[in-house]
Amino acid sequence: MPAYPSPQVASKVYVLVSRLKGIAVFVVSYLYAALFYLATAVLIVGVGRRILLYSRTPAPLKIPTTPAPTSTPGVVARMFREVVFFESLFKSNKWTWLFGWAFHFGLLLALLRHLRYFTDPVWSWVAFIQSAGVYAGYAMVFGLVGLWIRRLAVDRVRYISAPSDHLMLALILGIAGSGLLMKYVWHTDVVALKTYMLGLMSLQIKQLPADPMLLIHLALVICLMIIFPISKLLHAPGLFFSPTRNQADNPRERRHMPTNA
């Protein structure tokens, strides 16, 4: 008796396996489509609701962190420096600034680089930043690892760290790591992926390339989108509503009206 199956059996097994694969791809494509629609709705509605809440929260006290600008253009300039350079963090702690700034700008560049999956034809400036965007992934990992070491190694920071602080770092590190692994080790079919994403945007469900690393990457991104409106990650919109940052130091010139932020 030969140790291998007869050609008839082998071909039946082949047909069965390819049918099972087809069913798996179908299920995965629809599952991820449903999750993406859900996550997008949660992200937009959740963050929108938070922003409304923030904008309606009264700021009863005049408490800009001094020295503060004395005019509105001055406040805009200060907010700009805060958002772009993380000025106050730079003044308070150089290491945290280095890791935090590297991470955030890596994240920004990586996000912008991913616009190529959602636009057709790809905008010229998105095409232009593609090569720089690869290094953004490294900057993210560098920053996140640095921030996590800080959280574990600095006594006072470890003491005030909640599980969610670690979870956020793990989640985003997982996204950056799986992205880099796809770029350099386990590639996926980016053309099929883009077709799937453009399909989602026009409410058509195409086939998602079912590569494990891609599925991990996308699942983590979906988690991030869902968790964003109920997490510390809200510091992104929240920064603009901080009374200590968005107020001008002009209480004698103009009476403070504490009804709104």
């Binding site: 636009t119 057709d120 905008w123 053309v191 077709t195 453009l198 945007m201 026009s202």
Partner: peptide, 15 residues
Amino acid sequence: TALVSANTPAAADAP
């Protein structure tokens, strides 16, 4: 959101 959706063709197929 409007800008992104305005730039997306109704049904883009693979090249």
